[in-house]
């Protein structure tokens, strides 16, 4: 997947979890959880949706790398390179 595709997929996942939020205005920098109402259960759901859709396992120690949109895309790019 390209960076752009990863970003689109992430936005798709987030909007499935919080359908009432407008995810298109999410800034690339800045924590996702500060921009929209996501609690810790929602955050874990993002990780699980990634696992369900792309079979990527994200170890708990790496969760902080998924804080912002940009850092998530950076982190996921090598993992999703062949998907």
């Amino acid at each position: 997947m390209t960076k752009e595709e990863i970003k689109t997929s992430l936005l798709d996942i987030i909007s499935e979890i919080v359908p009432d939020e407008d995810v298109n205005n999410l800034e690339g920098e800045g924590a996702i959880r500060e921009q929209i109402d996501l609690d810790s259960m929602d955050f874990l759901d993002i990780i699980m949706e990634l696992r369900k859709r792309y079979k990527v396992e994200i170890p708990e120690d790496d969760y902080p790398k998924l804080a912002s949109m940009n850092s998530s895309v950076e982190y996921l790019e090598p993992l999703l390179a062949n998907k």
Partner: peptide, 11 residues
């Protein structure tokens, strides 16, 4: 968004 009912519905 932060109380049990909306959390459950999201889950």
């Amino acid at each position: 968004k932060t109380t049990p009912l909306p959390k459950i519905l999201r889950q």
